[in-house]
Design a protein around this nucleic acid. Structure first.
Lengths: 265, 265
DNA sequence: CCGACTTTGTGATTCAGATCACATTCATGT
DNA sequence: ACATGAATGTGATCTGAATCACAAAGTCGG
């Protein structure tokens, strides 16, 4: 029943890449600048999110069906339309989840942070993946095959509930994005919302809130539903108005109130 | 622990209304033209969706914590921002779930059909309702308080899994709408998507697919993120192009392929 | 059958932002 | 340090659809 998918999965991921340099034939290796975290048990994030407070037995059981892998930037964990093979528990790195239209336009649904579980909705419902998951920062993830995962859930009511909560969270996030895309009057408003979102979860230091902009303008455009040029323009208008300071990939929030005002216009 | 919320809840719902006629002081009554379905056990939809295949004991347990009510058109089941009081299992009627921006713009996230469970994400995660639920057709629903529901889930692993599946489904739907709103180039495209969505679940008779348009143009606009006038115009352009026939509130699909072509433009 | 409101239909106007077309600056690998 | 491709910055143009402003149909209660 529980064939170990890990190797096959690992290879597969490294095959499909976005654009640019080709990686097809390269062997898997540790992502640049990251030491490998061996077992999922030592993964710093696993415990405190989806699978916290599990009995040691359950943890062991989970460890058995889990297989860790590393993925380089550009790797694809799964592709929209493909049927759900299982879930990926993201331990380190960052993954972009998006959908594409026939003509190539892309809409980024969300960015996943360590601790999140990818492919959960599809795995649980048995439907095909509704999004494509592409690694934007070298990442490590634990894979659990759909079969194993579902069995684990069935044996483990508390975890099922926890999974439901995660899904609720995810839904919440999706709605938030729908709101920015659907209810905004202007690109400025969307951008303001985006910046506030990005900085919302950041801890401030010395009274200043900063955020790393992992995304290109192109990608920001794909998140808020505008064009790349508009992102560039709006962002520089924000700088002129002293709402934010952009230095390299670091964005510093200067006038939160000002941005919030734009949000409500 | 399990105080019965039903009466309080019932009264509350009837209080807040959208617009128009005032119902505040009126006593609760059966929705026009619907006989009341007494117990949730006889509710025709309950069994086959979320809570199918339960042991008789579980069904009984569920029946105990459930309270049925009827809601007239315009009633509000819950309001965005309010913290989750519990779930509503929709037995009959139709409910509109939407979010509103400060300036009054509305985005309809989805229309709920009988058998669906409303308020699930919030109840499970313990976060406030992220949407407002307004009855558009006289409805009947079974309410289960958050406490009771969560306890029920904890005692009942299989149901928790089922809940997770529902949530996955809901997420899926949300993504579908995000796609139409975010990836479309034109209002025509959005409208084509919308019409196809509406007719997708309908059974065809005599080789023709029809769908009841419960929504006003205004509401359609709020679903696909355009203006009312644009909906009117696009819809009549569809009629001119013989893609659909609209007669009263009945929409007949005439040229599915044609609409699909618009979808991919 | 008659007002009164809600919904739909249409024209005229206007403008935000998509798109195109480059110039410039930044990374990166060798 | 150079070269090459990616990412950003900026102007010019053009159009889809929002908005405004009514007219025409429907709908419903009394």
């Amino acid at each position: 029943m529980s064939e170990n998918h890990s190797a096959q999965v690992g290879r597969f991921h490294l095959v499909s890449r976005g654009k640019g340099h080709t990686l097809e034939s390269q062997p898997m290796r540790a992502p640049y600048g990251l030491e490998i975290i061996e077992s999922c048990l030592t993964c710093p994030h696993r415990e405190d999110r989806l699978f916290c407070n599990l009995s040691p037995a359950s943890v062991q059981r989970l460890a058995n069906i889990t297989s860790a892998s590393s993925y380089p930037k550009g790797a694809t964990l799964f592709v929209e339309g493909q049927d759900g093979r299982g879930v990926f528990i993201l331990c380190a790195g960052r993954v972009k989840l998006y959908t594409t239209s026939i003509d190539g336009k892309t809409l980024i649904a969300r960015l996943s942070e360590p601790g999140e579980v990818l492919g959960l909705p599809s795995t649980v419902t048995g439907m095909p993946y509704e999004l494509t998951a592409e690694v934007v920062e070298p990442s490590q993830a634990n894979f659990v095959s759909a079969n194993d995962f579902l069995n684990f859930l069935r044996e483990n009511g508390e975890v099922a509930l926890r999974v439901a909560q995660q899904l609720g969270q995810t839904y919440h996030t999706a709605l938030a994005e729908m709101r920015t895309i659907g209810l905004s009057h202007s690109a400025e408003e969307k951008m303001a919302r985006f910046v506030l979102d990005m900085t919302a979860n950041q801890k401030e230091e010395k009274g200043v809130v900063k955020a790393k902009l992992t995304l290109t303008h192109e990608e920001i455009a794909q998140m808020i539903g505008t064009s790349r040029e508009t992102v560039t323009r709006v962002l520089s208008s924000f700088r002129k108005k002293n709402l934010v300071i952009v230095k390299g990939s670091t964005l510093t929030l200067k006038d939160k109130a000002g941005l919030e005002r734009l949000t409500q216009s």
